[in-house]
Amino acid sequence: MFEARLVQGNLLKKVVDAVKDLVTDANFDCSSSGFTLQAMDNSHVSLVSLSLRSDGFEHFRCDRNMSMGMSLGNLAKILKCAGNDDIVTMKAADDGDTVTFMFESPKEDRVSDFELKLMDIDSEHLGIPDTDYAATVTLPAAEYQRICRDLSSIGDTVVISATKDGVKFSSSGDVGTANITVRQNTTADKKEEQVSIDLKEPVALTFALRYLNSFAKATPLASHVSLSMARDLPVMVDYQISDMGHLRFYLAPKIED
């Protein structure tokens, strides 16, 4: 039996809304340590990795490791029926072919349950090696979303260049060229405006903006996002989900032929 009760139920809605356009169907893996998902987009250019630790749930029970294949579009439709402040409980029998979502209003005066059919999804699991990144930039998630959106109106690729002076996002296209530089400001009076750059050595990488834009759908999940880069390696775009875990995206670079 798998049963997990999440008091901040809208977190699940935000997670699914963040990934459903990148990945259509995926396996959610449940074990005693938590609730995870790893999936690549169809072109195998980007990967999403969700990890919600069991201790972040009000109640978490997983008698036997299980993998639940779901259509993320259908899951999003079900989660749309949850109230923003509802408590969400997921339940699935060990050898069942459905998963039930129960939504309870805070005053417990409204309880609903939705049953979703599970799917058989054969997804390959990738090993993500620990990487010694040359640069890790942490900036407000809304700032990152705005940079991706603004540059998308200029071109379809972005060069992200991290130096000790700051991190520069450059794009060019038929319209023209754009450079957005964000400088470190760990002294910003408001924590949510702080930008920090952990630089071991300067690094510059080129990426397709449409994926970076898609990752920014995770903005509601966290105040900040971290971009970790190393030469000729995929970038890791990391949203920390407070007290629960993380939603991470990886994107392969575009490299001179």
Partner: peptide, 14 residues
């Protein structure tokens, strides 16, 4: 032009 790489050039299937 820069060629879009594939994640499987970097991460192995486990």
């Amino acid at each position: 032009a820069d060629k879009q790489r594939n994640l499987k050039d970097y991460f192995n299937t486990v």
